[in-house]
Design a protein around this nucleic acid. Structure first.
Lengths: 212, 212
DNA sequence: TAGATTTTACCGGACGGTAAGTAAGCTGCA
DNA sequence: TGCAGCTTACTTACCGTCCGGTAAAATCTA
């Protein structure tokens, strides 16, 4: 019986993981600048100096969290989307998965890694920032590409794909600011509504009876 | 020749106004927490203590700016919208005017009072915050009401009005994060595209030939 | 198995820096 | 003379960061 390293219930599947988790929560609640290392330390249950045993700097902590947000986005939205050949199905998957991780995030504690990703890029070094922006552009390009494919297939309305992509992002990202779990709509319902609105605004109605 | 209190060109139609203007710019660029009173003072051309001759505290400064943003929204979006009886026209006007002030804001110096309004509510006292949130709800209610009227007139698709209103806000507010004046699209074009997408997603297509 | 040694995981406290805010005084104009 | 409109000089408070130390655990000897 060797590697026995479990703990009772709450924390302790690694302090570092705990620190990341708690820091993400606090950054999300108070904002990066307003959150102090002391706040994080207290919430973890150790001293400020103790944090520095695990983490090099506050900035690096922020970068790790933001990067984790991008990983999440990549694994749960981008990769599954790429697996779909049909552009309409892909677009639907993007909307469904992206809205899901946004709304799921706020479940446990009003905490959402993607919110930090969007709001706190200013706290990064230029090098870190440009790395994140590059990963974001990959996502933007995926959506734009998907829209272009829809256009080629004659299924897209006459809209600019850049504006369309950003509008879609706006709808999705704004979710984290207004959606409440105790509200009258379930996350599935909200996802369905957003899909309806977005696809209705972008896609040509499937030709039913009339033509001109 | 009495009240001669003009200056050459740039500032001095009132220091207070200048301070508000410059502070709004800097809050917008660096964020409320990261911006220091010294930054503002330097940009104005006086000392930090000089700022406190006009302004009671940093928080009050923030509140004034955010409130000014709400005034702008009210005068340029809400009031004109209320004057329109037809709900579709009203919705179009809301989109056009709101997007216009968002994009116009960034003209002079990458500065936009509505961005601060959306991003820096956390810096306010609870009392100030709830006052702002109430004014925001008035706007939300206006949009939701307009959508309900469209529904009554049979012109709205089968979508939830709350999700629809927030999705519209998301599209509009996200504008300030991605729109660049040196980009390939003019602000008028972007407004037109957004109108097309939003209305396409929300409104029933005007019955042309077919029915069922 | 026991003792020696190293490593891990922290704590107390300090350091340099910077922030908001203030007190008190100077200066030019009415 | 008085007051608006500042400035200089300062206080207080906190922030990120790090250093020195330490108790306990892990690891290595013998």
């Amino acid at each position: 019986m060797k590697a026995q390293k479990k703990a009772a219930e709450s924390n302790e599947q690694g302090r570092l993981a705990q620190i990341y988790y708690v820091a993400a929560q606090i950054f999300c609640e108070k904002g990066y600048d307003a959150a102090s290392m002391n706040d994080i330390a207290e919430a973890v249950g150790i001293t400020k100096a103790g944090i520095y045993h695990y983490v090099k700097s506050k900035q690096e902590l922020l970068y790790a969290i933001i990067n984790y947000g991008m990983d999440l986005l990549e694994q749960e939205v981008i990769v599954p989307a790429r697996a779909l050949a049909d552009p309409e199905q892909r677009l639907r998957a993007i909307i469904a998965n992206h809205s899901r991780i946004i709304m799921r995030g706020s479940v446990d504690a009003g905490y959402n890694p993607l919110t930090i990703l969007n709001d706190e890029i200013a706290g990064l070094t230029p090098a870190q920032r440009s790395r994140i922006l590059q990963r974001k552009r990959v996502y933007l390009d995926l959506v734009r590409e998907t829209l272009e494919q829809l256009r080629s297939a004659g299924r897209l309305k006459d809209v600019d794909t850049t504006v369309a992509a950003f509008s879609l992002f706006g709808m999705l990202l704004w979710l984290s600011r207004w959606y409440r779990h105790d509200g009258k709509l379930s996350s599935q319902q909200v996802t369905a509504e957003i899909s309806k609105i977005a696809l209705g605004g972008l896609l040509r109605p499937p030709a039913r009876l009339s033509r001109k």
